[in-house]
Simulated assay, not measured.
Amino acid sequence: MGKNFLMAGFGGQGVLLMGELLAKAALLENKGVSWLPAYGPEMRGGTANCAVVIEEEGEVVSPLVFEPEVLVAFNKPSYLKFLPKTVPGGIVIVNSDLVDVKLSGPVRQVFLPANQACLELGSMKAVNIYLLGALIALTSVVKAETILGVLKEVFGPKGVYPLNEKAFWRGYDDAGKRANHVETVN
Rank of each mutant, 00 (worst) to 15 (best):
K24S: 10
D174F: 01
L148G: 08
Q13V: 04
I91C: 04
Y79R: 05
N95E: 11
A26H: 05
A73L: 14
G58Q: 07
M43D: 09
P37C: 06
V154R: 03
N95S: 13
L103H: 02
G11R: 04
L27A: 13
A51V: 06
K85D: 14
L27G: 08
K177M: 09
F82P: 01
A73P: 15
V60N: 07
P106K: 14
G19K: 00
F168I: 02
L119E: 12
P77W: 09
L80C: 11
E57D: 15
K177H: 06
A38L: 10
S78D: 03
A48G: 10
V70D: 01
K24N: 05
L148Y: 09
L36T: 08
Y39I: 07
E120S: 11
F168E: 00
S62A: 14
K152L: 15
E55F: 02
I54F: 01
L6Y: 00
Y161F: 13
V15G: 07
F155W: 00
L27H: 03
F111Y: 15
Y39N: 02
G11P: 05
G156L: 06
F10T: 05
S96Y: 01
E56C: 04
K166I: 06
N115C: 01
C50I: 00
E20F: 07
R108A: 15
P84G: 15
A26W: 00
G19S: 12
I91K: 08
V52A: 10
G11C: 15
A137H: 08
P106L: 15
C118Y: 00
E165P: 08
P106C: 15
T86Q: 12
P106E: 15
A179F: 11
S123V: 09
F168C: 05
P162F: 05
A48M: 06
Q116I: 06
V110G: 08
P77H: 11
G89E: 08
Y39T: 05
E145N: 13
L17T: 09
P113A: 00
G12R: 05
W35Q: 12
L27F: 08
M7H: 06
K24V: 11
L22V: 02
G58L: 07
K158G: 14
E69H: 05
G11S: 09
V110R: 06
G46M: 07
V150Q: 01
L148M: 15
N115G: 03
R108V: 15
E20P: 03
E59G: 13
G19N: 08
V52T: 12
A179Q: 13
I129M: 10
I93F: 00
V33Q: 04
E42M: 05
K24G: 04
L64I: 15
V154W: 01
M7T: 11
